Computed example of a mutant assay.
Amino acid sequence: MTAGPNKTITPVEIGGKLVGPDQPVYVIAEIGLNHNGDVAIAKQLIDIAHEAGCDAVKFQKRTPEISTPKDMRDVMRETPWGTMTYLDYRYRVEFEEEQYTEIDNYCSKLGMHWFASPWDVPSVEFLANKFDVVTFKVASASVTDLELLTAMKNTGKPVILSTGMSTIEEIDKAVETLGTEKLVMMHATSTYPMPAHEANLRTINTLRERYGVPVGYSGHETGLQISLAAVALGAVTVERHITLDRTMWGSDHSASLEPGGLRHLVRDIRIIEEALGDGVKRVFEGEIKPKARLRRVG
């Protein structure tokens, strides 16, 4: 399955915004489970993403009794709400229709996109039928769940496919299932936090050439440099986890950006977009006077 380096990459429309080459980078602030089951925290994170200039916030949606592995359900876990089974913990942090209605209304007022990574088929139906989300995100852990991918494709909505912890052969099967017409891919490495030597950013170009679709970057590193380098290499969308405080309880907080980091990320992405230019060599207006003053011949 190789598209070839000369294939034209067609942008994908997500909620009225085009995601692809020569378009503004689509910046996704992943809230995930960093709301810790509290809608008030979720709204604070939405505000932070909106103020930073992000295009969308992303959550995770599960039906815990389906998506929680059987051998994990009765494992005891220490939480801020006491010791409980892993299944009970999953229910404790899961938003349902009432909470997502609040989120939907809140994002609508701000003009923000919101969507989620569904981890099971009922969650796909919930997001599509109850809220008509603008897109679906395939979590890296779900790349091989072809039943889930088929359910997303059948909604007719665009799909963003993360590729962490996946082989090329596994990604091939996922792409065969989803098709390429409304597909955006995300290069990712699913280490939390991710060390620089595992970033392998040149894979962005590998995926673009192999599948002929827009390719972005989903980052789990600390800091901003790797995400910004991904933009310079042509990533059309960037996703980073966000948190109020990296020291908060929860598995994703330590690899997340705090408010100041998110603001700097979006600011620097927009500067890089402007700096990349169109690739046409020219003499700029600011060079004319130095040229007249400094060039001796010609």
Rank of each mutant, 00 (worst) to 15 (best):
I204H: 01
G219E: 04
E176M: 12
I41M: 10
P214K: 02
K281E: 13
G219N: 05
G111K: 13
D132V: 02
E170G: 12
E239R: 06
I272W: 02
A292R: 14
R208A: 10
L45C: 03
D38Y: 04
R240E: 13
G156N: 13
L276F: 06
G216W: 05
T206E: 02
V27P: 05
L146R: 04
R90T: 03
P21Y: 12
I168A: 14
R240I: 02
Q99G: 09
C107Y: 07
I28T: 08
T8H: 08
V134C: 14
H220A: 07
L265W: 00
I160G: 03
E94N: 11
V283R: 08
S256L: 08
S227Q: 11
T63C: 06
I288S: 04
V297P: 01
L233D: 02
A232D: 12
V236F: 00
V138R: 03
H187D: 06
K58E: 00
L276T: 11
I14N: 12
R90K: 14
L127A: 05
G15C: 10
P69T: 04
R246E: 02
T243R: 05
G53V: 12
P5E: 07
T237E: 05
C107S: 10
E30P: 04
F59C: 06
E198Y: 13
V280Y: 07
A29K: 02
V297G: 06
N34I: 11
V175H: 09
V39R: 01
H35L: 05
P214V: 11
T79Y: 02
F126S: 04
S108K: 15
A232G: 14
V184I: 15
L244C: 02
V27T: 15
S117Q: 01
G179A: 10
V238P: 09
S166W: 02
F59D: 10
K58M: 01
N34A: 06
S117L: 07
L183G: 07
P195D: 09
G223E: 12
E96F: 14
P122H: 08
T247A: 13
P24L: 08
F95T: 03
N205M: 12
D268Y: 01
K58P: 07
K289D: 14
G4N: 01
R267Q: 15
W119Y: 15
M72Q: 14
M165L: 11
G16N: 09
A141Y: 01
E209S: 12
S254D: 13
M76N: 11
M112E: 11
L148F: 01
K7Y: 00
R62L: 01
M72K: 15
D252G: 05
T68H: 10
E285I: 12
H35E: 02
H197P: 10
A230I: 13
D145G: 03
A139V: 09
I269D: 00
A40H: 06
V93K: 05
T237M: 07
P118E: 02
V283T: 15
V93P: 08
A196M: 06
F115A: 10
I28W: 02
K137Q: 03
T155Y: 01
